[in-house]
């Protein structure tokens, strides 16, 4: 059996395949060592900083372990605990995270899309306007927290000053369990520019001929939007959905800085990853339980991404794809 391959210099060469598996592996490395050497950093990186940690975290999750002293085997206690002892807090974290995701993902997608449609006109200065809309995205997370904590402060914050001057009752923002989530989601809107630029690029990718053809056949705004624009943008909707699910379910930093490291009044902002963080890095760290919790989240995220991938028949990748 002769195998053909292209060597480093681009010449096609043939070689007899050996039956000895060791020789075959040796041959593989001999033929491909340059390429393998070049990509070796990322392969080692995945090994050291992804695979090893994942295996060790799976191992830790079956033990009572504080990260320093010895591992004590405790069967599946770490995996049953969320449904028994720790049920209340676990399901609070799940419900907070899901509520946030269910509102936040579609909201940012729809509003980002609307914003993109609006800014996709050919007007003077539109580029500068787009850029300025994007600008809040570069505000570092910590400053975002400082800024809005200050703005929503009940005694000396500007937020309530504005609200009361409009003749409305003062708003409790992050200090009430009823309004904390709404406040958080509203403040997210300042980052809408990030979503908008993705949509604009996606809109510009739609061939103009499609609209021209539709107009000749007398299609109105609705037909054009629902039969051309949205289907042609479906890869972007898909991408946003996947990234939205992965990102939203792991919400941490922006809430942590907004609440000053607390889970909000009556745990109303106890996001899942915050729970994991408190479990792993409190006064009495429980690395074992935290590992189990993070694996549960991993499975949840995996299931949702899989569902989206499996039901992605509606995504249109162009004729030739």
């Amino acid at each position: 059996m002769i195998e053909y391959y292209t060597d480093v210099y681009g010449n096609v060469r043939g070689k007899r395949k050996s039956r000895n598996p060791l020789k075959r592996i040796g041959g593989y490395f001999k033929r491909n060592w340059v390429g393998l050497l070049l990509v070796s950093p990322v392969l080692l990186g995945i090994l050291f900083f992804t695979l090893v940690p994942m295996v060790s975290s799976l191992y830790d999750s079956f033990f009572k372990y504080d990260g320093i002293t010895e591992h004590i085997w405790n069967n599946f206690a770490n995996f049953t605990r969320p449904f028994t002892d720790d049920r209340e807090e676990f399901f609070k974290a799940i419900s907070v995270t899901f509520l946030y995701s269910i509102i936040n993902i579609p909201l940012t997608m729809v509003l980002g899309y609307a914003l993109a449609l609006f800014l996709n006109q050919k007007l003077k200065g539109i580029k500068i306007i787009r850029m300025l809309y994007y600008l809040p995205v570069v505000i570092p997370t910590v400053i975002y927290g400082l800024l809005w904590r200050n703005f929503t402060n009940l005694e000396y914050g500007l937020g309530n000053q504005i609200i009361t001057s409009l003749g409305l009752k003062p708003f409790p923002f992050f200090t009430s369990k009823n309004t904390a989530m709404a406040t958080l989601i509203f403040l997210n809107l300042f980052g809408l520019g990030g979503n908008m630029v993705l949509w604009i690029a996606s809109l510009n990718n739609i061939p103009k001929e499609l609209y021209e053809a539709a107009e000749i056949e007398g299609a109105g705004w609705g037909t054009k939007t629902f039969r051309i624009t949205i289907p042609m943008c479906s890869p972007m909707i898909f991408y946003n959905l996947i990234m939205g699910i992965i990102g939203s379910l792991q919400t941490f930093g922006n809430v942590f800085v907004m609440t000053g490291g607390t889970p909000g009044p009556k745990n109303s902002l106890l996001f899942y990853v915050m729970k994991v963080y408190y479990t792993a890095f409190s006064g009495s760290p429980e690395i074992g339980y935290a590992s189990a919790l993070s694996w549960i989240l991993f499975v949840i995220i995996g299931i949702f991404t899989l569902i989206v991938f499996r039901t992605s028949k509606w995504v249109f990748y162009g004729e030739d794809a």
Binding site: M54, L249, V273, F298
Partner: peptide, 22 residues
């Protein structure tokens, strides 16, 4: 495989990495 690691939630890695770095 390299691209697939992008999809992994970082929490799963961060806690064991903390232990390893420690």
């Amino acid at each position: 495989i390299v691209l697939a690691t992008m999809m992994l939630p970082s929490v799963v890695v961060q806690i064991p990495l903390y232990v390893i770095f420690n």
